[in-house]
Design a binder for these strands. Structure first.
Lengths: 335, 335
DNA sequence: TCCTGGCACTCGGACTCGTTGAGTGCTAAT
DNA sequence: ATTAGCACTCAACGAGTCCGAGTGCCAGGA
């Protein structure tokens, strides 16, 4: 079937180009690949693939390189491939002795960047909304106090607030008692309502509103989103295929966080096992020469882990590694 | 004086090369700089400077560029220059509304990378030993509790502990009262002694020792050292003068932390206002093409803030910016 | 003793130009 | 539908040439 062979030709071109970073020609394909046809036939196929916008020539009469669309087609037809045993073992040993969430994330991102030889990104698990277990107010000097909120899922958040005018010890104590009585066990909208009511009570301390805000903010889920990355050097390493001028904007985007977060969110919505954005599909000028492979982890699938590299990357390998790390992370995080 | 003019020639070469990234020749110097001598004289001076190892030619009969030693001489003779007003104002507005330590560090590193157009690094302030302001125990289920320690410098540390066998509410409450009475205002060895005594009291709850350990650990100073960086893209940006191959190892070193930390420690020991390492002086292959300008901040001068860039960097400007940010950080951190 | 003008020399960068070879598109034959 | 053949294109490469910025050195002047 001719249609099928064309796919094979595309695959061969993608793999060849990824391996060598050089345009691949019809003759080379005819020789190295066992397609059973001559170079002339391959040339014809190539002409068609080019018409379809899947491959392109850097200049007249050079070999062909895949376009973003070509990579896309390649990726879409990719069967889930397994990670090598060695890698699988690496994940186990590397992540097994992590002590806390920070450590898990830190190790994961390092590991993934090594497995893929790309820049790895891990979005911190977005915290779920929780209820108040305890609110503490600790005076720090006469004009400041520290609000410490312990939520039901054992998270502790603190923030320093200004008391404004001097507050007597009695009203301070009273405020602490009251806020605990009011907020205990509540979360979300009910917490907010109860605290608003409390803060607006007559004869209330002037900083009640501030405290209420802090408590609400502390129990609200995933407000601070953060993504950490590792392996930035892989972008610059020889053979990445990106020139210095291309790298700077990518590094900026990584540090920006917000750009990356939006992109990851979009990808999470796709709901695939592993989702891939190729080149211009990222919708970001800075990332137009890079691709990103991401997978959700955790129960509610709101957090992502991924790898970012040049469009000319090893998609099957990267996808396998990302998938494996995401699975592992899910296990660890869902405890 | 001829000696003095030679210095001027060196300065002019450094400044010229920093500005243009191109070797500077005797003729150009004679014309642009008001040295009052001819190009031939400058050539003679250059020959001497080259003998002294302060400048070099990339190839026979090209202009001269400064060597590491040349930069060093230039830097050593640099008078402390002031930061521009605009920059000074930027520091104020940028850092003034930071809410906590994390925020301060985060903002500082961003700011410094923008001011210097280099990679900025900030070492987290190594925390001083502090006294206990408040200890809270929050029950999480029947068998676990959360120990929350608020120290005098407004730090909050928490850790979850297992209670072992069931503890009655009364003894739980009593433990909280006792530990606060015992520990309040103490730190260091005295705190440790007092808590040990308390934990070993007859009729004490079985987990008293665990709590004591947590409280002591929470008030002990700086065990984890960390350095954050920002502006990595400045390395890759056009005009940095570093090629892709040079950048990758630098990025690795930045992510390594340990390499950077050791270097910063060494620099802290020099005790200067602002200390500078140029090229090979960093004693790290990866950083041999870069310089780092660092200044200590905070009371005990154990934490550093710095900027890292190509050896061919604007030393006066960078030093001024680093100095200014360090001063500002000192003010904020020493509250 | 220090500076200067002059001069021969060097050598990378830029330019041209022909060669090479990988790669293409097209066409006619199978 | 495939293939062999052929004319064509064009980047890469190397050799040759020129240019000019920049040098080192020397002899003469302040």
């Amino acid at each position: 079937m001719t249609e099928e062979r064309r796919r094979a030709v595309l695959h061969a071109i993608v793999e060849g180009y990824v391996a060598t970073h050089e345009p691949v020609g019809s003759k080379a394909l005819a020789e190295t690949q066992a397609l059973g046809v001559s170079s002339a036939t391959i040339r014809n196929d190539m002409a068609i693939l080019e018409e379809e916008g899947l491959i392109a020539q850097p200049y007249t009469s050079a070999g062909r390189i895949p376009t973003d669309k070509g990579y896309r087609s390649f990726v879409d037809q990719l069967a889930a491939s397994a990670l090598s045993d060695a890698h699988r073992r690496a994940i186990g040993t590397f992540l097994s002795d992590a002590v806390d969430l920070n450590d898990v994330v830190e190790r994961s991102v390092r590991l993934l960047s090594q497995l893929t030889r790309q820049v790895a990104v891990v979005q911190y698990p977005s915290l779920r909304e929780s209820a108040v277990r305890r609110v503490e107010l600790v005076r720090m000097g006469t004009e400041h106090a520290l609000v410490v909120v312990v939520s039901a899922d054992a998270r502790v958040e603190q923030q320093s607030i200004a008391l404004g005018e001097a507050t007597s010890d009695e009203s301070f104590e009273r405020a602490v008692r009251e806020i605990n009585a009011t907020a205990l066990g509540l979360g979300g909208a009910r917490l907010e309502a109860a605290l608003t009511l409390w803060a607006e009570a007559p004869d209330q301390v002037p900083w009640a509103g501030t405290v209420a805000d802090v408590v609400v903010a502390a129990t609200r889920g995933g407000t601070v989103e953060r993504v950490v990355f590792a392996g930035a050097s892989n972008l610059a390493r020889a053979g990445s295929g990106l020139e210095a001028a291309t790298i700077a904007p990518v590094l900026d985007a990584l540090e920006e966080q917000v750009v990356l977060l939006r992109l990851l969110h979009e990808m999470a919505d796709e709901g695939d096992d592993v989702s891939v954005r190729i080149g211009a599909e990222t919708h970001h000028e800075a990332l137009s020469r890079t691709s990103i492979v991401a997978a959700a982890y955790g129960r509610d699938a709101a957090s992502l882990v991924g790898a970012l590299g040049p469009t000319r990357m090893d998609y099957p390998g990267t996808m396998a590694a990302v998938r494996a790390v995401a699975r592992y992370l899910s296990k660890v995080v869902e405890l």
